Computed example of a mutant assay.
Amino acid sequence: MKKTTVVLAVALAAGTTMVQAKELEVYGKINVSAQYSDEGEGSFTELKSNASRFGLKGDYALEDGLTVVYQLEWEVDPSDEANEKNIKSRNQYLGLAGAFGEVRLGRHDTALKMSQGKIDLFSDYEGDIKVLWKGENRTSNSVSYFSPSFSGFSAQVTYIAEDDPEAEDGISAALLYGDENLKDSTVYAAVAYDADVAGYDTVRASAQVKVSGFKLGAMYQTQEATDTGLERDGYLLSVAYPVGKFELKGQYQAMEDDNGFSAGADYKLGKNTKLFAWYSSFDFDTALDKDYLAVGLEHKF
Results as ranks from 00 to 15, higher is better:
Ala263Phe: 06
Met255Asn: 05
Glu75Arg: 15
Met1Pro: 13
Ser147Leu: 07
Lys88His: 07
Gly135Arg: 06
Asp77His: 08
Ser262Cys: 03
His108Arg: 14
Gly250Trp: 00
Leu121Phe: 01
Ala240Thr: 02
Glu41His: 10
Lys29Leu: 12
Ala294Pro: 12
Phe246Met: 09
Gln208Tyr: 10
Ser49Met: 01
Ala167Phe: 07
Ser154Lys: 15
Phe44Pro: 01
Ser172Pro: 08
Lys183Glu: 12
Asp201Tyr: 11
Leu121Asp: 02
Tyr292Asn: 04
Ala99Met: 04
Gln92Tyr: 05
Asp184Thr: 10
Ala14Gly: 07
Gln253Asp: 00
Ala51Lys: 00
Asp258Cys: 02
Ser33Asn: 12
Lys245Glu: 03
Ile160Thr: 10
Asp164Gly: 10
Ala294Leu: 08
Gly98Met: 04
Glu166Leu: 15
Gly106Cys: 11
Ser49Trp: 00
Val295Met: 13
Ala174Gln: 06
Ala111Ile: 02
Ala99Leu: 04
Thr4Lys: 04
Ser144Trp: 09
Val187Lys: 12
Ala198Glu: 14
Met219Cys: 11
Ser52Lys: 01
Thr228Ile: 04
Ser185Met: 13
Tyr177Val: 15
Arg204Cys: 08
Thr202Cys: 09
Tyr252Thr: 02
Ser123Thr: 10
Thr228Cys: 05
Leu288Pro: 02
Val203Asn: 08
Gly95Leu: 01
Asp257Leu: 05
Ala189Arg: 11
Thr67His: 10
Asp109Gln: 10
Ser185Gly: 12
Leu132Gly: 00
Tyr70Glu: 08
Ser89Thr: 11
Ser43Val: 09
Gly42Leu: 15
Met1Arg: 06
Phe100Gln: 03
Asp179Met: 13
Val10Ile: 14
Ser33Phe: 07
Ile171Lys: 00
Arg90Ser: 09
Ala265Trp: 14
Ile160Met: 11
Glu46Leu: 12
Leu94Ile: 12
Ala198Met: 11
Arg204Met: 10
Ser172Ala: 09
Ile171His: 00
Ala263Ser: 09
Leu56Gly: 06
Glu126Asn: 15
Thr139Lys: 14
Leu47Ser: 02
Val197Thr: 06
Val211His: 12
Lys57Glu: 15
Lys271Met: 14
Glu256Trp: 06
Tyr70Gln: 05
Thr158His: 04
Ala218Cys: 14
Gln156Leu: 12
Gly250Pro: 01
Gly28Ile: 04
Val69Asp: 06
Ala173Trp: 13
Tyr267Ser: 06
Phe122Val: 02
Glu23Met: 07
Ser154Asn: 13
Phe284Cys: 04
Ala195Ile: 05
Ser52Asp: 03
Phe214Thr: 07
Ala192Thr: 08
Asn181Val: 02
